[in-house]
Computed example of a mutant assay.
Amino acid sequence: MVRHAFAAGLAVLLAGQGAVACAQSDASVVAPDPVAATCRPQFAVDGQAIAAGTAFVLDLTPPPRPDNPLAPRAEQVMLVTALHLFGPNGGLPAQILSADLPQHVGLTTCRGAQGQAWTARRTLAIAGAVPMAMPFRDVAGFATDAVGVAGAERLRLADRPPAVGDDVWVVAAMTADGRVRRHAARVIYVGDNALQYVFVDATLQLRASSGAAVVNAAGQVVGLHLGGGVDRGDLVGMAVPPSRLRALVEAAQ
């Protein structure tokens, strides 16, 4: 059961920045490195520069067609983060709604773990995205392309959600040295309203981690991290669950 009392009263901590990704069960296939897909974004909001949260590169390009593997495929690549960054949690006086993001917000640069400067072509509006409310739909996205994220790893959404007890990793900077790493956690709840997990390291600093990717052992995205806090001695994180994350990013315009 989801920890409703905890989730309802939990302060969402602002986003902020790994180890080598695990290999998939097929040892011949190397999982993508989620650290190489993670960056610290800077935005222009109505002319004001802000730096808040964490973002990651997500590839929604359709896979090759089994009947025609060489058929052209429209590239769909996004930089994804949390919508609540564009409000008081990001230092702004009021929350900007998802529908209004393209008129007010631009992503100026997103610094990768190795200092790369990734960029976006345009800000997306995501129908149904809502900040800081259950069921979690707290998602923002920025369309990019191969030039904008040159050298970045591209993550993909997992086909299956994690199960309670599964290991997952949140990819962000959560330690004093400011380095992006994969931080291990174990799933305690997954449903259409939320994904929750207990971090192995209860000393992590969650500030500036909102918008980070939650990945499985194969390096696939199973959630979008929103924040967390201590509950009954555990450091618990919460995320947009995979089913809602997929629906939201696929609806981005």
Rank of each mutant, 00 (worst) to 15 (best):
V180H: 10
V180R: 10
V180Q: 12
V180L: 12
R181N: 12
R181A: 14
R182V: 07
R182K: 13
R182L: 13
R182G: 13
H183P: 01
H183A: 00
H183W: 08
H183T: 01
H183R: 00
H183D: 01
A184G: 10
A184Q: 14
A184Y: 05
A184P: 09
A184L: 14
A184R: 15
A184I: 06
A185S: 07
A185I: 02
A185R: 03
R186L: 02
R186E: 10
R186N: 02
R186V: 13
V187Y: 04
V187Q: 05
V187W: 05
V187K: 07
I188R: 12
I188A: 05
Y189Q: 14
Y189H: 15
Y189A: 15
V190M: 11
V190W: 09
V190K: 10
G191P: 09
G191E: 10
G191A: 12
D192F: 09
D192Q: 13
D192H: 13
D192M: 11
N193A: 15
N193T: 15
N193K: 13
A194V: 15
L195M: 10
Q196D: 13
Q196I: 00
Y197C: 06
Y197Q: 04
V198H: 11
V198R: 12
V198C: 09
V198D: 14
V198L: 05
F199A: 03
F199V: 01
F199K: 02
F199P: 01
F199Q: 03
V200R: 15
V200M: 12
V200C: 09
D201W: 08
D201T: 09
A202R: 14
A202N: 14
A202S: 14
A202G: 09
T203N: 12
T203H: 11
T203A: 13
T203C: 04
L204H: 00
L204P: 00
L204T: 00
Q205M: 08
Q205N: 12
Q205R: 10
Q205K: 09
L206G: 00
L206Y: 01
L206R: 02
R207M: 10
A208I: 07
A208P: 02
A208Q: 13
A208R: 12
S209E: 04
S209D: 05
S209V: 03
S209I: 02
S209W: 01
S210D: 04
S210K: 00
G211P: 06
G211V: 08
G211S: 08
A212T: 02
A212S: 14
A212L: 06
A213R: 03
V214F: 03
V214S: 02
V215K: 06
V215Q: 02
V215T: 11
N216R: 04
A217W: 03
A218G: 15
A218L: 08
A218P: 06
G219F: 05
G219Y: 05
G219H: 09
G219L: 07
Q220H: 11
Q220P: 03
V221Y: 00
V221Q: 02
V221W: 05
V221I: 08
V221P: 05
V222R: 04
V222Y: 07
V222P: 07
V222F: 07
L224H: 00
L224T: 01
L224S: 00
L224D: 01
